[in-house]
Design a protein around this nucleic acid. Structure first.
Length: 426
RNA sequence: GGAGAGAUGGCUGAGUGGUCGAAGGCGUUCGAUUCGAAAUCGAAAGUACCUUGACCGGUACCGCAGGUUCAAAUCCUGUUCUCUCCGCCA
Protein backbone atom coordinates (compact mmCIF):
# COMPACT_ATOMS: atom_id res chain seq x y z
CA UNK A 1 0.00 0.00 0.00
CA UNK A 2 1.21 3.46 -0.85
CA UNK A 3 1.27 6.33 1.60
CA UNK A 4 -1.92 8.36 1.20
CA UNK A 5 -0.07 11.48 2.33
CA UNK A 6 2.36 11.07 -0.52
CA UNK A 7 -0.54 10.94 -2.96
CA UNK A 8 -2.13 14.03 -1.42
CA UNK A 9 1.04 16.04 -1.42
CA UNK A 10 2.55 14.89 -4.67
CA UNK A 11 0.08 13.07 -6.91
CA UNK A 12 2.15 13.91 -9.98
CA UNK A 13 5.21 12.13 -8.60
CA UNK A 14 3.21 9.03 -7.70
CA UNK A 15 1.46 9.01 -11.06
CA UNK A 16 4.78 9.22 -12.85
CA UNK A 17 6.30 6.43 -10.76
CA UNK A 18 3.35 4.14 -11.36
CA UNK A 19 3.44 4.82 -15.07
CA UNK A 20 7.05 3.68 -15.10
CA UNK A 21 5.63 0.41 -13.88
CA UNK A 22 3.13 0.40 -16.71
CA UNK A 23 0.29 1.43 -14.42
CA UNK A 24 -1.70 4.43 -15.54
CA UNK A 25 -3.78 6.06 -12.91
CA UNK A 26 -5.78 9.21 -12.42
CA UNK A 27 -5.99 10.57 -8.90
CA UNK A 28 -8.59 13.28 -9.56
CA UNK A 29 -11.57 11.32 -8.28
CA UNK A 30 -9.59 9.86 -5.40
CA UNK A 31 -8.43 13.26 -4.22
CA UNK A 32 -11.96 14.64 -4.44
CA UNK A 33 -13.23 11.80 -2.31
CA UNK A 34 -10.41 12.37 0.12
CA UNK A 35 -11.33 16.01 0.42
CA UNK A 36 -15.03 15.43 0.99
CA UNK A 37 -14.25 12.64 3.40
CA UNK A 38 -12.14 14.92 5.52
CA UNK A 39 -14.74 17.66 5.49
CA UNK A 40 -17.34 15.17 6.55
CA UNK A 41 -15.12 13.94 9.35
CA UNK A 42 -14.62 17.45 10.60
CA UNK A 43 -18.30 18.34 10.78
CA UNK A 44 -19.25 14.97 12.22
CA UNK A 45 -16.60 15.08 14.90
CA UNK A 46 -17.79 18.52 15.90
CA UNK A 47 -21.28 17.13 16.27
CA UNK A 48 -19.95 14.29 18.37
CA UNK A 49 -18.02 16.66 20.58
CA UNK A 50 -21.13 18.70 21.23
CA UNK A 51 -23.20 15.63 21.88
CA UNK A 52 -20.61 14.26 24.31
CA UNK A 53 -20.54 17.55 26.13
CA UNK A 54 -24.29 17.62 26.62
CA UNK A 55 -24.38 13.96 27.58
CA UNK A 56 -21.83 14.46 30.29
CA UNK A 57 -24.00 17.10 31.91
CA UNK A 58 -27.06 14.88 32.06
CA UNK A 59 -26.34 13.06 35.33
CA UNK A 60 -25.98 16.35 37.21
CA UNK A 61 -29.10 17.84 35.66
CA UNK A 62 -31.00 14.68 36.47
CA UNK A 63 -30.00 15.00 40.09
CA UNK A 64 -31.42 18.50 40.17
CA UNK A 65 -34.67 17.14 38.79
CA UNK A 66 -34.52 19.15 35.58
CA UNK A 67 -36.87 18.06 32.82
CA UNK A 68 -34.66 16.59 30.14
CA UNK A 69 -37.21 15.71 27.46
CA UNK A 70 -36.11 18.42 25.06
CA UNK A 71 -32.43 17.63 25.66
CA UNK A 72 -33.01 13.98 24.88
CA UNK A 73 -34.87 14.87 21.72
CA UNK A 74 -32.10 17.16 20.60
CA UNK A 75 -29.37 14.59 21.17
CA UNK A 76 -31.36 11.91 19.46
CA UNK A 77 -31.61 14.10 16.40
CA UNK A 78 -27.86 14.70 16.42
CA UNK A 79 -27.22 11.01 16.84
CA UNK A 80 -29.20 10.21 13.74
CA UNK A 81 -27.26 12.71 11.70
CA UNK A 82 -24.00 11.39 13.12
CA UNK A 83 -24.95 7.87 12.19
CA UNK A 84 -25.76 8.93 8.67
CA UNK A 85 -22.47 10.78 8.28
CA UNK A 86 -20.49 7.91 9.75
CA UNK A 87 -22.01 5.62 7.18
CA UNK A 88 -21.01 7.97 4.37
CA UNK A 89 -17.50 8.23 5.77
CA UNK A 90 -17.27 4.45 5.98
CA UNK A 91 -18.44 4.14 2.38
CA UNK A 92 -15.83 6.63 1.23
CA UNK A 93 -13.18 4.83 3.27
CA UNK A 94 -14.05 1.59 1.60
CA UNK A 95 -13.95 3.03 -1.89
CA UNK A 96 -10.69 4.80 -1.20
CA UNK A 97 -8.92 1.87 0.38
CA UNK A 98 -10.13 -0.40 -2.39
CA UNK A 99 -8.44 1.94 -4.82
CA UNK A 100 -5.29 2.27 -2.71
CA UNK A 101 -5.00 -1.50 -2.29
CA UNK A 102 -5.03 -1.96 -6.02
CA UNK A 103 -2.02 0.27 -6.60
CA UNK A 104 1.34 -1.45 -6.92
CA UNK A 105 4.46 -0.20 -5.20
CA UNK A 106 6.47 2.63 -6.69
CA UNK A 107 9.70 1.59 -8.39
CA UNK A 108 12.98 2.71 -6.92
CA UNK A 109 14.54 5.76 -8.56
CA UNK A 110 17.39 3.69 -9.98
CA UNK A 111 15.09 1.12 -11.58
CA UNK A 112 14.58 1.45 -15.33
CA UNK A 113 11.08 2.05 -16.65
CA UNK A 114 9.26 -0.41 -18.83
CA UNK A 115 8.99 -4.19 -18.98
CA UNK A 116 11.19 -7.24 -19.45
CA UNK A 117 12.92 -5.76 -22.49
CA UNK A 118 14.61 -3.27 -20.19
CA UNK A 119 15.96 -5.78 -17.71
CA UNK A 120 19.70 -5.73 -17.79
CA UNK A 121 22.35 -8.19 -16.79
CA UNK A 122 24.69 -6.87 -14.14
CA UNK A 123 26.84 -9.96 -13.51
CA UNK A 124 27.48 -13.31 -15.10
CA UNK A 125 29.19 -16.31 -13.58
CA UNK A 126 30.87 -18.94 -15.70
CA UNK A 127 30.24 -19.67 -19.35
CA UNK A 128 27.60 -21.45 -21.35
CA UNK A 129 28.74 -25.06 -21.11
CA UNK A 130 29.74 -26.66 -24.39
CA UNK A 131 29.14 -30.28 -25.18
CA UNK A 132 30.95 -32.43 -27.70
CA UNK A 133 27.75 -34.43 -28.06
CA UNK A 134 24.08 -33.61 -28.23
CA UNK A 135 23.20 -32.71 -24.60
CA UNK A 136 20.08 -34.30 -23.21
CA UNK A 137 17.00 -32.73 -21.68
CA UNK A 138 16.75 -33.04 -17.89
CA UNK A 139 13.55 -35.06 -18.18
CA UNK A 140 15.31 -37.64 -20.30
CA UNK A 141 18.33 -37.68 -18.02
CA UNK A 142 16.20 -38.01 -14.88
CA UNK A 143 14.11 -40.75 -16.37
CA UNK A 144 17.00 -42.77 -17.68
CA UNK A 145 18.76 -42.50 -14.31
CA UNK A 146 15.50 -43.35 -12.55
CA UNK A 147 15.76 -40.44 -10.16
CA UNK A 148 12.51 -38.66 -10.97
CA UNK A 149 9.20 -40.33 -11.73
CA UNK A 150 7.09 -38.00 -13.80
CA UNK A 151 4.51 -40.56 -14.83
CA UNK A 152 3.56 -41.61 -11.35
CA UNK A 153 3.70 -38.02 -10.16
CA UNK A 154 0.95 -37.26 -12.64
CA UNK A 155 -0.92 -40.36 -11.51
CA UNK A 156 -0.95 -39.01 -7.96
CA UNK A 157 -1.44 -35.31 -8.41
CA UNK A 158 -2.07 -34.63 -12.07
CA UNK A 159 -0.13 -32.63 -14.57
CA UNK A 160 2.58 -30.51 -12.99
CA UNK A 161 3.61 -32.98 -10.30
CA UNK A 162 6.54 -35.34 -10.12
CA UNK A 163 8.16 -37.65 -7.63
CA UNK A 164 11.77 -37.46 -6.56
CA UNK A 165 13.02 -40.92 -5.88
CA UNK A 166 16.14 -42.66 -4.77
CA UNK A 167 19.22 -40.61 -5.52
CA UNK A 168 16.96 -37.93 -7.01
CA UNK A 169 15.25 -37.45 -3.68
CA UNK A 170 18.60 -37.45 -1.94
CA UNK A 171 19.99 -34.94 -4.39
CA UNK A 172 16.99 -32.66 -3.87
CA UNK A 173 17.36 -32.97 -0.11
CA UNK A 174 21.10 -32.38 -0.31
CA UNK A 175 20.51 -29.14 -2.19
CA UNK A 176 18.11 -27.97 0.51
CA UNK A 177 20.56 -28.93 3.24
CA UNK A 178 23.29 -27.00 1.52
CA UNK A 179 21.09 -23.88 1.42
CA UNK A 180 20.02 -24.26 5.03
CA UNK A 181 23.56 -24.66 6.27
CA UNK A 182 24.70 -21.54 4.43
CA UNK A 183 21.93 -19.42 5.92
CA UNK A 184 22.56 -20.69 9.40
CA UNK A 185 26.23 -19.81 8.98
CA UNK A 186 25.22 -16.30 7.99
CA UNK A 187 23.16 -15.84 11.14
CA UNK A 188 19.67 -16.17 9.73
CA UNK A 189 17.08 -17.76 11.98
CA UNK A 190 15.43 -20.91 10.67
CA UNK A 191 11.66 -21.22 10.85
CA UNK A 192 9.29 -23.98 9.89
CA UNK A 193 5.99 -22.28 9.25
CA UNK A 194 2.38 -23.28 8.63
CA UNK A 195 1.66 -24.15 5.01
CA UNK A 196 -1.97 -23.16 5.39
CA UNK A 197 -2.38 -19.45 5.92
CA UNK A 198 -5.28 -17.13 6.54
CA UNK A 199 -6.47 -14.44 4.18
CA UNK A 200 -4.70 -11.62 6.01
CA UNK A 201 -1.33 -13.17 5.18
CA UNK A 202 -2.02 -12.93 1.48
CA UNK A 203 -3.25 -9.39 1.87
CA UNK A 204 -0.19 -8.19 3.77
CA UNK A 205 2.18 -9.80 1.31
CA UNK A 206 0.41 -7.87 -1.44
CA UNK A 207 -0.80 -10.98 -3.26
CA UNK A 208 -4.45 -10.43 -2.36
CA UNK A 209 -6.93 -9.40 -3.49
CA UNK A 210 -5.47 -9.15 -6.97
CA UNK A 211 -3.79 -12.53 -7.29
CA UNK A 212 -5.99 -14.63 -5.07
CA UNK A 213 -6.92 -16.84 -8.01
CA UNK A 214 -3.29 -17.95 -8.34
CA UNK A 215 -3.25 -19.85 -5.06
CA UNK A 216 -4.94 -23.04 -3.94
CA UNK A 217 -7.83 -21.79 -1.85
CA UNK A 218 -9.45 -23.81 0.88
CA UNK A 219 -13.15 -23.21 0.55
CA UNK A 220 -15.07 -22.66 3.74
CA UNK A 221 -18.34 -24.49 4.35
CA UNK A 222 -20.52 -21.43 4.03
CA UNK A 223 -20.76 -18.99 1.16
CA UNK A 224 -18.37 -16.45 2.67
CA UNK A 225 -15.62 -17.36 0.21
CA UNK A 226 -12.28 -18.72 1.26
CA UNK A 227 -10.60 -17.97 4.54
CA UNK A 228 -7.42 -19.99 4.10
CA UNK A 229 -5.09 -20.97 1.31
CA UNK A 230 -1.99 -23.05 0.75
CA UNK A 231 1.09 -20.89 0.61
CA UNK A 232 2.53 -20.11 -2.82
CA UNK A 233 5.87 -19.20 -1.24
CA UNK A 234 7.23 -19.06 2.29
CA UNK A 235 7.48 -15.30 1.82
CA UNK A 236 3.76 -15.10 2.41
CA UNK A 237 4.24 -16.60 5.85
CA UNK A 238 7.52 -14.94 6.77
CA UNK A 239 6.43 -11.46 5.88
CA UNK A 240 3.46 -11.77 8.24
CA UNK A 241 5.42 -12.69 11.34
CA UNK A 242 5.39 -9.18 12.73
CA UNK A 243 2.01 -8.12 11.44
CA UNK A 244 0.33 -5.64 13.82
CA UNK A 245 3.43 -5.30 15.93
CA UNK A 246 5.52 -2.38 17.10
CA UNK A 247 9.06 -3.42 17.94
CA UNK A 248 11.96 -1.51 19.41
CA UNK A 249 14.39 -0.05 16.91
CA UNK A 250 17.34 -2.04 18.24
CA UNK A 251 15.56 -5.34 17.54
CA UNK A 252 15.92 -4.75 13.79
CA UNK A 253 16.94 -6.25 11.50
CA UNK A 254 15.11 -9.56 11.72
CA UNK A 255 16.67 -12.14 9.42
CA UNK A 256 14.67 -15.28 8.82
CA UNK A 257 14.59 -18.18 6.45
CA UNK A 258 12.19 -21.05 5.98
CA UNK A 259 11.99 -24.14 3.88
CA UNK A 260 8.58 -24.94 2.45
CA UNK A 261 7.20 -26.46 -0.68
CA UNK A 262 5.47 -23.79 -2.74
CA UNK A 263 2.03 -24.56 -4.09
CA UNK A 264 0.82 -22.71 -7.15
CA UNK A 265 -2.04 -23.13 -9.53
CA UNK A 266 -0.08 -21.93 -12.56
CA UNK A 267 -3.34 -22.14 -14.45
CA UNK A 268 -2.85 -22.23 -18.17
CA UNK A 269 0.80 -21.36 -18.02
CA UNK A 270 2.13 -24.66 -19.28
CA UNK A 271 4.16 -24.62 -22.40
CA UNK A 272 5.85 -27.43 -24.21
CA UNK A 273 9.24 -25.91 -23.53
CA UNK A 274 8.53 -26.08 -19.83
CA UNK A 275 8.11 -29.82 -19.71
CA UNK A 276 9.79 -31.33 -16.73
CA UNK A 277 10.12 -29.47 -13.48
CA UNK A 278 10.55 -25.94 -14.71
CA UNK A 279 7.05 -24.96 -13.66
CA UNK A 280 5.10 -27.23 -11.37
CA UNK A 281 2.23 -26.94 -8.93
CA UNK A 282 4.57 -27.81 -6.10
CA UNK A 283 8.24 -27.09 -5.77
CA UNK A 284 10.74 -26.81 -2.96
CA UNK A 285 12.20 -23.53 -1.93
CA UNK A 286 14.15 -21.97 0.87
CA UNK A 287 13.08 -18.39 1.35
CA UNK A 288 14.90 -15.52 3.03
CA UNK A 289 13.15 -12.54 4.56
CA UNK A 290 14.51 -9.49 6.29
CA UNK A 291 12.76 -6.76 8.25
CA UNK A 292 14.95 -3.67 8.41
CA UNK A 293 15.08 0.00 9.29
CA UNK A 294 14.13 2.12 6.28
CA UNK A 295 17.66 3.41 5.89
CA UNK A 296 19.10 -0.10 5.83
CA UNK A 297 16.92 -1.81 3.27
CA UNK A 298 19.00 -1.01 0.19
CA UNK A 299 22.07 -2.57 1.74
CA UNK A 300 19.99 -5.52 2.90
CA UNK A 301 18.85 -6.14 -0.65
CA UNK A 302 22.46 -6.30 -1.83
CA UNK A 303 23.20 -8.74 0.98
CA UNK A 304 20.31 -10.97 -0.04
CA UNK A 305 21.31 -11.01 -3.69
CA UNK A 306 24.88 -11.84 -2.87
CA UNK A 307 23.74 -14.66 -0.60
CA UNK A 308 21.61 -16.18 -3.33
CA UNK A 309 24.39 -15.78 -5.87
CA UNK A 310 26.86 -17.44 -3.57
CA UNK A 311 24.66 -20.52 -3.44
CA UNK A 312 24.48 -20.91 -7.21
CA UNK A 313 28.17 -20.20 -7.55
CA UNK A 314 28.88 -22.83 -4.91
CA UNK A 315 27.10 -25.36 -7.10
CA UNK A 316 29.31 -24.33 -10.01
CA UNK A 317 26.38 -23.52 -12.27
CA UNK A 318 26.58 -20.97 -15.04
CA UNK A 319 24.18 -18.14 -14.18
CA UNK A 320 23.60 -14.42 -14.40
CA UNK A 321 22.15 -11.68 -12.25
CA UNK A 322 19.75 -9.15 -13.72
CA UNK A 323 18.19 -6.03 -12.42
CA UNK A 324 14.54 -5.99 -13.41
CA UNK A 325 12.84 -3.08 -15.10
CA UNK A 326 9.98 -1.46 -13.22
CA UNK A 327 7.09 -3.32 -14.84
CA UNK A 328 8.77 -6.70 -14.46
CA UNK A 329 9.06 -6.33 -10.68
CA UNK A 330 6.09 -7.81 -8.88
CA UNK A 331 3.42 -5.46 -7.61
CA UNK A 332 4.67 -5.17 -4.04
CA UNK A 333 8.28 -4.50 -4.91
CA UNK A 334 10.34 -1.37 -5.42
CA UNK A 335 13.35 -3.13 -6.82
CA UNK A 336 14.13 -6.69 -7.80
CA UNK A 337 17.17 -8.68 -8.85
CA UNK A 338 16.72 -12.01 -10.56
CA UNK A 339 19.27 -14.74 -10.54
CA UNK A 340 18.89 -16.99 -13.54
CA UNK A 341 20.59 -20.25 -14.19
CA UNK A 342 21.45 -21.60 -17.59
CA UNK A 343 19.25 -24.46 -18.80
CA UNK A 344 20.96 -25.95 -21.86
CA UNK A 345 17.87 -27.69 -23.24
CA UNK A 346 15.96 -24.43 -23.24
CA UNK A 347 18.93 -22.52 -24.51
CA UNK A 348 17.96 -19.90 -21.99
CA UNK A 349 18.31 -18.69 -18.43
CA UNK A 350 15.58 -19.48 -15.91
CA UNK A 351 14.95 -17.77 -12.61
CA UNK A 352 16.17 -19.53 -9.48
CA UNK A 353 15.98 -16.56 -7.18
CA UNK A 354 14.22 -13.27 -7.06
CA UNK A 355 15.49 -10.81 -4.46
CA UNK A 356 13.35 -7.79 -3.76
CA UNK A 357 12.95 -4.78 -1.57
CA UNK A 358 9.31 -4.00 -0.78
CA UNK A 359 10.19 -0.83 1.14
CA UNK A 360 7.27 -0.03 3.43
CA UNK A 361 4.63 -1.36 1.04
CA UNK A 362 4.00 -4.63 2.84
CA UNK A 363 4.63 -3.06 6.24
CA UNK A 364 1.83 -0.57 5.63
CA UNK A 365 -0.56 -3.33 4.59
CA UNK A 366 0.35 -5.39 7.62
CA UNK A 367 0.81 -2.54 10.09
CA UNK A 368 4.38 -3.48 10.98
CA UNK A 369 6.23 -0.77 12.83
CA UNK A 370 9.20 -0.02 14.98
CA UNK A 371 9.76 2.68 17.56
CA UNK A 372 12.60 5.04 16.65
CA UNK A 373 14.67 5.63 19.76
CA UNK A 374 15.77 9.17 18.92
CA UNK A 375 12.24 10.45 18.32
CA UNK A 376 10.10 8.03 20.31
CA UNK A 377 7.84 7.85 17.28
CA UNK A 378 6.71 4.80 15.37
CA UNK A 379 7.69 4.24 11.75
CA UNK A 380 7.02 1.52 9.23
CA UNK A 381 9.64 -1.17 8.82
CA UNK A 382 10.96 -2.21 5.46
CA UNK A 383 10.58 -5.79 4.29
CA UNK A 384 12.70 -7.73 1.83
CA UNK A 385 12.67 -11.23 0.52
CA UNK A 386 14.81 -13.44 -1.64
CA UNK A 387 14.66 -17.04 -2.69
CA UNK A 388 17.66 -18.84 -1.40
CA UNK A 389 16.89 -20.83 -3.52
CA UNK A 390 14.15 -22.59 -5.43
CA UNK A 391 15.27 -26.09 -6.37
CA UNK A 392 12.92 -26.66 -9.27
CA UNK A 393 15.33 -25.10 -11.72
CA UNK A 394 18.50 -25.85 -9.84
CA UNK A 395 18.10 -29.57 -10.17
CA UNK A 396 17.42 -29.43 -13.93
CA UNK A 397 20.41 -27.13 -14.28
CA UNK A 398 22.62 -29.57 -12.41
CA UNK A 399 21.37 -32.48 -14.48
CA UNK A 400 21.84 -30.67 -17.74
CA UNK A 401 24.98 -28.67 -17.05
CA UNK A 402 26.78 -31.53 -15.32
CA UNK A 403 25.80 -34.31 -17.69
CA UNK A 404 28.53 -36.49 -19.07
CA UNK A 405 28.88 -38.25 -22.39
CA UNK A 406 28.16 -41.60 -20.71
CA UNK A 407 24.83 -40.32 -19.37
CA UNK A 408 26.01 -39.87 -15.79
CA UNK A 409 25.77 -36.73 -13.71
CA UNK A 410 28.57 -35.18 -11.68
CA UNK A 411 27.31 -34.18 -8.25
CA UNK A 412 28.51 -30.73 -7.19
CA UNK A 413 31.23 -30.95 -4.56
CA UNK A 414 29.28 -29.05 -1.90
CA UNK A 415 26.42 -31.54 -1.98
CA UNK A 416 28.41 -34.72 -1.65
CA UNK A 417 28.57 -34.78 2.12
CA UNK A 418 24.78 -35.16 2.17
CA UNK A 419 24.86 -37.93 -0.38
CA UNK A 420 27.10 -40.38 1.31
CA UNK A 421 30.14 -39.01 -0.46
CA UNK A 422 29.22 -40.26 -3.92
CA UNK A 423 30.58 -38.17 -6.77
CA UNK A 424 28.17 -38.99 -9.54
CA UNK A 425 24.87 -40.52 -10.39
CA UNK A 426 24.81 -43.16 -13.09
C1' G B 1 -17.50 -32.74 16.48
C1' G B 2 -19.87 -31.79 21.88
C1' A B 3 -19.76 -28.86 26.59
C1' G B 4 -17.86 -24.85 29.33
C1' A B 5 -14.72 -20.45 30.33
C1' G B 6 -12.48 -16.29 28.46
C1' A B 7 -10.60 -11.94 25.11
C1' U B 8 -9.36 -4.80 28.68
C1' G B 9 -3.11 -0.54 27.54
C1' G B 10 4.21 -3.13 26.74
C1' C B 11 2.79 -7.21 30.49
C1' U B 12 -0.50 -8.46 34.58
C1' G B 13 -5.18 -7.32 36.30
C1' A B 14 -9.75 -4.42 38.36
C1' G B 15 -13.96 -2.58 36.39
C1' U B 16 -22.02 -4.84 35.18
C1' G B 17 -25.03 1.69 32.27
C1' G B 18 -23.11 8.27 33.17
C1' U B 19 -17.28 12.03 36.46
C1' C B 20 -13.75 5.42 32.40
C1' G B 21 -8.96 6.18 27.77
C1' A B 22 -10.02 3.15 31.73
C1' A B 23 -7.84 1.50 39.23
C1' G B 24 -3.72 -1.29 41.29
C1' G B 25 0.83 -3.94 40.32
C1' C B 26 5.12 -4.98 37.08
C1' G B 27 8.09 -3.06 33.39
C1' U B 28 9.76 1.62 30.63
C1' U B 29 11.37 6.99 30.48
C1' C B 30 12.58 11.58 33.09
C1' G B 31 13.64 14.03 37.76
C1' A B 32 14.92 13.97 43.18
C1' U B 33 18.03 11.31 46.61
C1' U B 34 23.32 8.90 46.05
C1' C B 35 30.37 9.32 45.02
C1' G B 36 27.64 5.78 41.86
C1' A B 37 23.98 2.01 42.06
C1' A B 38 19.93 -0.54 44.55
C1' A B 39 15.89 0.84 47.47
C1' U B 40 12.67 5.05 48.12
C1' C B 41 9.94 9.50 46.55
C1' G B 42 7.79 12.60 42.47
C1' A B 43 6.30 12.82 37.45
C1' A B 44 5.58 11.17 32.38
C1' A B 45 4.16 7.70 28.91
C1' G B 46 -1.21 3.93 24.19
C1' U B 47 -2.78 3.63 18.78
C1' A B 48 -5.15 5.85 14.68
C1' C B 49 -7.55 9.86 12.56
C1' C B 50 -9.27 15.29 12.17
C1' U B 51 -7.41 20.26 13.05
C1' U B 52 -2.68 23.41 13.60
C1' G B 53 3.32 26.05 11.12
C1' A B 54 3.86 23.93 16.03
C1' C B 55 1.62 23.66 20.84
C1' C B 56 -3.37 23.26 22.26
C1' G B 57 -7.78 20.99 21.01
C1' G B 58 -11.24 17.26 19.09
C1' U B 59 -12.96 12.18 17.55
C1' A B 60 -12.62 6.96 17.64
C1' C B 61 -10.65 2.56 19.74
C1' C B 62 -11.73 -2.35 26.07
C1' G B 63 -11.14 -9.22 20.06
C1' C B 64 -14.33 -7.94 15.55
C1' A B 65 -19.31 -6.44 13.47
C1' G B 66 -24.07 -4.89 14.51
C1' G B 67 -28.17 -3.54 18.05
C1' U B 68 -30.71 -1.27 22.53
C1' U B 69 -30.21 3.66 25.11
C1' C B 70 -30.09 10.62 25.80
C1' A B 71 -25.58 7.73 27.31
C1' A B 72 -22.17 1.13 26.51
C1' A B 73 -15.69 -1.73 28.40
C1' U B 74 -20.40 -2.72 31.10
C1' C B 75 -26.88 -4.84 28.41
C1' C B 76 -28.51 -7.80 23.68
C1' U B 77 -27.33 -10.48 18.88
C1' G B 78 -23.86 -12.41 15.57
C1' U B 79 -18.86 -13.61 14.63
C1' U B 80 -13.51 -14.68 15.21
C1' C B 81 -9.82 -16.38 18.22
C1' U B 82 -7.74 -18.61 22.81
C1' C B 83 -8.00 -21.98 26.96
C1' U B 84 -10.14 -26.40 29.67
C1' C B 85 -12.79 -31.03 29.53
C1' C B 86 -15.02 -35.00 26.46
C1' G B 87 -15.15 -37.57 21.72
C1' C B 88 -12.60 -38.79 17.11
C1' C B 89 -8.03 -39.21 14.48
C1' A B 90 -2.52 -38.83 13.02
Amino acid sequence: MLDINMIRENPGYVKEGLSRKGFNVDFTEFLEKDKSRRELIRTTENLKAEKNKISSEIPALKKQGTDLTSVFARIKEDSELIKLNDQRIADLDKEMSGFLESLPNLPDDDVLSGGKENNFVIRTFGNVPEFSYEPKHHVDIAESLGIIDYTRGVKLGGNGFWIYKGLGARLEWAILNYFIEEHLNDGYEMLLVPHILNYACGYTAGQFPKFKEDVFQLKSDDESGFTHFILPTAETALVNLHRDEIVDEEKLPFKYFAYTPCYRKEAGSYRAEERGMIRGHQFNKVELVQYTLPEDSQAALEELVSKAEKLVRGLGLHHRVSKLAAADCSASMRKTYDIEVWIPSMNDYKEVSSASNAGDYQARRGNMKFRRKSTGKTELMHTLNASGLATSRILPAILEQNQQADGSIIIPEVLRKWMGGIQKIG
